[in-house]
Simulated assay, not measured.
Amino acid sequence: MALELEAAVLPVPDGVRAELRREWGRLAAPGTWLSGEERVAVAREARAARTFADAHTELEPVLVEAAQSVSAAANLITREWVADLLTRGMTIEQYVEVVGIVSRVAAVDAYVRGVGSAEEALPDSEPGEPTRRRNIDVRPRAAFVPTDPEDGARYALSAVPAEESARDQLHAQLYLSTPQMADLTHQNELSRAQMELLAARVSFLNDCFY
Rank of each mutant, 00 (worst) to 15 (best):
L85Q: 07
T78P: 00
M90P: 00
V62I: 15
L76H: 10
E65G: 09
L63A: 12
V82F: 05
V62M: 12
V64E: 08
S71L: 08
L76G: 05
I77N: 00
V70W: 10
V70Q: 07
A72R: 08
A72G: 01
A66L: 07
I92R: 05
A83Q: 14
A67V: 02
V82M: 03
S69P: 04
I92V: 14
D84G: 01
L85P: 01
I77S: 00
A66P: 02
T91F: 09
E93Y: 05
T78M: 12
L86F: 15
A66Y: 05
V62K: 06
A67S: 11
G89T: 03
A73H: 15
E65D: 14
G89M: 13
E93T: 03
A66V: 05
Q94H: 07
A83R: 15
W81S: 10
D84V: 02
E65W: 15
A72D: 08
L63W: 12
A72W: 13
A83F: 13
D84A: 02
T91K: 03
A73E: 14
N75T: 13
A73G: 15
L86G: 00
L85T: 01
R88Y: 09
R79Q: 11
A66C: 07
S69I: 08
A67T: 01
L85E: 04
S71K: 07
W81C: 03
E80V: 08
I92A: 05
V82R: 06
Q94F: 07
A72L: 06
V82N: 01
S71A: 15
M90N: 05
L76K: 11
A73K: 13
W81A: 14
Q68W: 03
N75G: 15
R79C: 01
V62D: 08
S71E: 11
E93Q: 06
W81T: 11
N75V: 13
L63R: 09
M90S: 14
I77R: 02
S69V: 10
Q94K: 05
A67F: 06
S69N: 11
E80G: 02
L86N: 01
I77T: 10
V82Y: 04
E93D: 09
A73Q: 14
G89D: 13
A66S: 04
G89W: 14
D84N: 03
L76W: 10
L85K: 02
E80S: 09
L63H: 13
V70D: 00
V62N: 01
L76R: 13
W81N: 00
E93G: 05
L86Y: 12
S71Q: 10
A73N: 14
R88C: 04
A73P: 01
R79V: 09
L76V: 12
T87H: 09
R79P: 00
R79I: 08
E65T: 14
L86C: 07
A66F: 03
L76Q: 13
D84R: 06
L63F: 12
D84P: 01
Q68S: 01
L63G: 06
T87P: 03
L85V: 06
R79W: 12
T87Y: 07
L86P: 00
N75E: 15
R88W: 02
Q68Y: 07
T87S: 12
